[in-house]
Design a protein around this nucleic acid. Structure first.
Length: 432
DNA sequence: CTAGCCTTGAAA
DNA sequence: TTTCAAGGCTAG
């Protein structure tokens, strides 16, 4: 999209404007200005406009996690549109009356955003004056067209890993990691079902041959007290309220499992699957508690939803998919703020049929989304398009969780699941 | 259908 | 008057 002879008002090639480091959060192409809520490229602007104006309903032929980047953005309009929404493009900015020109209510938002970026650039100049003056914030090779710098649209998120100390790693022993990431991708419109106050979330117990990693390692990049500076500190702070200390949580689960195992006789030891169920159960408890204690979630009125899922998942594919997901999250070096934002994005799903205050959910989702975007841009400006990459993993999180649910339900039908657990209650609720 | 370029018009 | 984010047009 080099535009010979065309000089959009804002960006110029290899320019020195404040947003020169910006790439379209949807596809990575060069931004041409603010469109429908945020800085995007011309093509995503046009695509979003057409989609909304013509009330398009796309369907993904794959798993709703297609890469959306400069070279592949045409391939799956469904995933592209979902990503447009996920990064914060606003349907309501497309005019129903098709009136041209003028300004809309987002004007002030754009202005604030610009000011924020300028402040950020100013701050960077204070710390690295030479670099900023001479080159754009990103490493743009003068010979490489910017289009070539499309951020990888492949994903990476992070979950946490833990081993069960004291349990053998050999075959038949325990290779466990636990994931407390909940399950439903907030941005998709299919059968989603975040848990209801007395219903349940789907969680992902998984088995991973991990080394001695504690899951706090996954949060290696930014310490708990990261420099939030101007990134909507109050809202992010609100999100972090009630967030449990992950390492303590893990230690608690491990301790309880060890206690139980120690109390059992030599021939009465829990097998791997039972341990996984218990871990899932405790993780679920933690999630339910977390959601119930969340002030944002308390404001919602939700009725119990029911979901039917199909059987057919296999443990091995589940394990490998989860391993992939976990390693991608680890590679991304998710920090606590990002993790809690992702959890909220999953929890606040406006597509759940039984949610009464849909608008409220949408607004919260947008707010969290924005907080996440600002945080990643500000605290991880070195990681190109970390925000987009994080969002891209959500469909996979959701997909894995559905697979886990299906698998567990099958085991449940076979009578393999421990009774009287939250896990079995969850499966029961969902399948009735 | 896509995306590059053009026109429009309210707000600054 | 200028700005710039809307919508429109159209070649590919």
């Amino acid at each position: 999209m080099d535009l010979p002879g065309y000089h959009p008002q804002q960006p110029q090639p290899h320019d020195s404007r404040p947003e020169s480091e910006e790439n379209c959060p949807v596809c990575g192409d060069r931004v041409s200005g603010y469109h429908y809520g945020l800085l995007t490229c011309e093509s995503c602007k046009g695509f979003f406009k057409r989609s909304v104006q013509n009330n398009k309903h796309y369907t993904c032929a794959d798993q709703q996690s297609c890469p959306v980047n400069l070279s592949q953005r045409k391939r799956c309009p469904s995933c592209r549109f979902q990503k447009c929404l996920a990064v914060g493009m606003k349907r309501e900015a497309v005019r129903a009356d098709r009136m041209r020109g003028g300004r809309n209510k987002f004007g002030p938002l754009y202005r604030r955003d610009r000011q924020m970026k300028q402040r950020r650039m100013y701050n960077q100049e204070q710390t690295a004056p030479n670099r900023i003056k001479t080159e754009p914030a990103q490493t743009h090779c003068p010979h490489a067209p910017r289009r070539g710098l499309t951020p990888p649209s492949l994903p990476y998120p992070a979950l946490y890993h833990c081993t069960l100390p004291g349990y053998p790693q050999e075959k038949g022993g325990i290779h466990s990691s636990c994931s407390s990431a909940p399950a439903n991708y907030a941005g998709h419109s299919t059968q989603n079902h975040p848990f209801t106050p007395r219903s349940t979330p789907a969680s992902s117990p998984c088995s991973t041959p991990s080394s001695s990693t504690a899951f706090s390692q996954a949060f290696s990049q930014v310490p708990a007290a990261s420099p939030l500076a101007t990134v909507t500190p109050s809202f992010l702070g609100q999100l972090l309220e009630g967030e449990q200390d992950e390492s303590q949580l893990c230690a608690k689960v491990l301790a309880s499992l060890q206690r139980e195992q120690a109390n059992r006789g030599k021939h009465d030891r829990l097998n791997t699957f039972s341990i996984m169920c218990k871990m899932a159960d405790q993780t679920l408890f933690g999630l339910v508690e977390w959601a119930r204690n969340s002030s944002l979630f308390k404001e919602l009125k939700i009725e119990v939803s029911t979901i039917l899922s199909q059987a057919g998942a296999t443990l091995s594919s589940l394990v490998s998919r989860t391993q992939d997901l976990v390693s991608k999250f680890k590679a991304l070096q998710l920090d606590r703020h990002e993790f809690v934002c992702l959890k909220y994005l999953v929890l606040f799903n406006p597509d759940v049929k039984s949610v009464q205050s849909r608008r409220q959910v949408e607004q919260t989702q947008e707010k969290v989304n924005r907080a996440l975007m600002e945080h990643t841009q500000q605290c991880h400006s070195g990681q190109s398009d970390k925000f987009g990459q994080l969002l891209l993993r959500l469909p996979e999180v959701r997909s894995i969780s559905l697979q886990v649910e299906e698998y567990l339900y099958q085991r449940h039908l076979l009578g393999d699941l421990p009774c009287n657990s939250l896990l079995s209650e969850m499966l029961h609720t969902k399948h009735n």
